[in-house]
Simulated assay, not measured.
Amino acid sequence: MRPDPRLTIITEALRQPLPEVTQADMIYGYSATYFAPDAAQRPTPWGMQVDMLAHLIHTRLYGRPSSTEQASPLAQAEDAKRRRDLGGELDALAAGQASLQNAPWYPLQPGDVVHVSYAAINDVVSAFGETYLIEAGSCDGFLNMRLLARSGDFDPGADLTVADDPDPLFDVWFEAGPHTLTIVRHGHVVHPAGGEGR
């Protein structure tokens, strides 16, 4: 699990705002009005752990920080199903479909290259990747997704090869998740893993 990178940046900035300042684990705050002659106007001084203040700032700016890896649309739907949240389950599936079909590069075209990155699973399976070529299928408007290469030394015993499918990326988009996919068209990355493409 990786901490949200925005939270890490905020925490580091608070912990050591300037290179010559010693790193701090606690922050104490005083207002200029603390020294006001009227005691009723003096705010209460405060102290807070740096990581707690960073969390508070992040939550106010961006919402609660994510401490887990991104989840695929199917994993999000399964999580909602476990919570008995039918609306959340349907929303996750609809959002997954919309994110694919509204992508500026969608639909895939013959010649596109799709790379799927798989994260390591503890000490059992090391990280690996698979690269696929999109080709024209035998039916008009249908496509094939053919395995070109697999990196790493893990062999799952199967791959994501698809033949004669109008949308060969649909299953992997939902199951592996868009954050695991890199899509290249005409030598340009149109969908980088974990980010927005062009």
Score class of each variant (00 low, 15 high):
residue 59 T to R: 14
residue 12 E to T: 06
residue 195 G to C: 00
residue 193 A to N: 08
residue 191 H to Y: 10
residue 139 C to V: 14
residue 42 R to V: 07
residue 48 M to R: 10
residue 10 I to P: 02
residue 11 T to P: 00
residue 106 Y to V: 05
residue 124 V to Q: 15
residue 142 F to H: 14
residue 119 A to M: 00
residue 97 Q to H: 08
residue 50 V to W: 05
residue 165 D to M: 06
residue 126 S to R: 00
residue 14 L to T: 00
residue 55 H to T: 12
residue 82 R to I: 03
residue 92 A to C: 07
residue 173 W to A: 04
residue 57 I to C: 15
residue 134 I to E: 09
residue 167 D to N: 11
residue 104 P to F: 12
residue 143 L to A: 02
residue 87 G to T: 13
residue 100 L to I: 06
residue 172 V to R: 03
residue 127 A to M: 07
residue 172 V to F: 04
residue 188 H to A: 13
residue 67 S to Q: 10
residue 100 L to F: 01
residue 19 P to N: 09
residue 8 T to F: 06
residue 94 A to E: 05
residue 1 M to D: 14
residue 144 N to Y: 11
residue 60 R to T: 12
residue 181 L to T: 05
residue 102 N to D: 09
residue 19 P to W: 10
residue 86 L to H: 09
residue 144 N to A: 04
residue 24 A to D: 13
residue 166 P to Y: 04
residue 143 L to F: 12
residue 105 W to A: 04
residue 49 Q to E: 13
residue 141 G to A: 08
residue 24 A to W: 07
residue 80 A to V: 06
residue 122 N to W: 08
residue 18 L to G: 13
residue 125 V to I: 15
residue 13 A to W: 10
residue 144 N to R: 02
residue 8 T to G: 01
residue 119 A to E: 03
residue 182 T to I: 03
residue 62 Y to V: 05
residue 176 A to P: 00
residue 174 F to T: 04
residue 93 L to Q: 09
residue 36 A to D: 14
residue 66 S to Q: 14
residue 140 D to S: 15
residue 149 A to E: 13
residue 146 R to W: 03
residue 166 P to T: 10
residue 58 H to R: 14
residue 17 P to T: 07
residue 174 F to W: 00
residue 168 P to N: 07
residue 36 A to Y: 10
residue 63 G to Q: 12
residue 31 S to E: 15
residue 50 V to H: 01
residue 194 G to S: 14
residue 163 A to K: 12
residue 157 G to D: 00
residue 75 A to C: 06
residue 136 A to R: 12
residue 106 Y to D: 07
residue 3 P to F: 09
